[in-house]
Write a protein that binds this DNA or RNA. Structure first.
Lengths: 229, 229
DNA sequence: TCAAAAGTGTTCACCGTACACCCATGG
DNA sequence: CCATGGGTGTACGGTGAACACTTTTGA
């Protein structure tokens, strides 16, 4: 069959990743200092070109793995950016993904090797191209999503305390949330498993650790259960 | 400057449009019967290739204009689809957009020329490639969006009756909505202008016509006003 | 006078939100 | 024994949901 497409323009396609983490206090994003042109030396999102055998989410996962060493992370497509001169060298279409990772589990050598660094959301440097817009959009999406679906777990260690979770939500939504109301709401969702184990990291009394009940959670999700936080 | 990108793969990029309309009774989508290969004769979304000087939304608007003759329509990016073999001839990355138009205002000759036809959502033919997935996703998004923001206006004529609006919402959300509660809620949003004019199309008594107050609406939107329907 | 759609309020249950004190422990 | 963070319950107001009858007028 003869291709009917031969007169059409072709383009470079890339993905860029907004990588969120939480250090217990602040919501953070992982940025790299570019060691290649253009804009060498500038801060940027981690990105990469789409390859022939990949779909966009594969490319995003590959790029993310290259920087953090992590597999099987939560990735969500954010938006396809296409401004003609986004990249000064040549036109590149970029699909942005955002991801939530446990800040403690990534591979620190890889981070160093890529000259990457964690920055607080709300206080990070000017980025190249349209990456600032991507980040803004990702934060907005994360906020909205967080109040519909408790995806924040993915930013915490496997075992976490209620107050970590509480802090996380306050941080993401950038507002005070009443502790008792929050705990009551979370409990009513029935997606947490209370362990018979305490963390003594932050107090003498110790606070119970929880895990989230992945199966319960995903079943409810797939049944269209509406979380509302 | 030498391009550092020269070894990377390039791809064809396209847009596909899910075009929603409302005939007073049913939510509809506009599909075309392809008169070109591949899949000639099959039903499909209207689409087109991205050009060198366009961003994705330009391409979507162009494609939409080509089929309907309309300008300045509501367009929202849905998702970037990238399965490797979506198109059997050659790899094409496609960004899907959905749009809401007043079914009465489009150019009927263009529709004919493109062998296009309106189908009820929930009863339309098998589509080519991954277009069925695109449509499903668009419907889901439209539902969610409709209960957050009254975008449904865009599917109605400029002047419409309360019951048209009521029917529209019932249709989109595919469930019964109490008439009095609905009207009270809509009124409480303060984005409708009640005209001193009635429509006698559907009753002897006649029903008042409304317009939506675009400025009010957009101001509230940009102030982050949360609608919730 | 009747058929067919337009238009209009009230009540109740539940949920979101505000709010403050005791507990356990290590130092 | 005290300082620090952990853990817990109740009351109120507002919002969402259920519910039915009267009005208008052309045929």
């Amino acid at each position: 069959m003869i291709s009917s497409y031969e007169n059409e323009d072709k383009f470079l396609n890339a993905v860029d990743c907004i990588i969120f983490g939480f250090d217990g206090k602040n919501l953070k994003i992982l940025l790299i200092k570019r060691d290649f042109e253009p804009e060498k030396g500038q801060w940027s999102l981690m990105g990469g070109f789409l390859r022939n055998n990949e779909i966009f989410s594969d490319a995003a996962a590959r790029v993310l793995n290259k920087l953090t060493g992590l597999h099987d992370v939560y990735l969500e497509q954010l938006f396809a950016f296409s401004k003609v001169n986004r990249d000064p060298v040549e036109r590149i279409l970029s699909v942005a993904y955002y991801t939530l990772i446990d800040i403690n589990t990534h591979n620190k050598e890889l981070i160093q090797k890529n000259s990457a660094k964690w920055f607080n959301v709300g206080n990070f440097p000017e980025l190249i191209f349209d990456h600032n817009i991507m980040v803004e959009r990702a934060i907005k999406r994360l906020r909205r999503k967080t109040s519909i679906e408790p995806i924040g777990f993915k930013l915490l260690p496997r075992k976490f305390t209620m107050l970590q979770l509480h802090n996380l939500h306050e941080t993401i939504l950038n507002k005070k949330i009443d502790k008792r109301n929050f705990i009551a709401k979370i409990n009513s969702l029935n997606i947490l498993i209370k362990l018979h184990e305490k963390s003594f990291e932050s107090s003498k009394k110790g606070s119970f650790l929880y895990m989230y009940d992945k199966e319960e959670y995903e079943e409810k999700l797939s049944n269209g259960f509406t979380f509302k936080l």
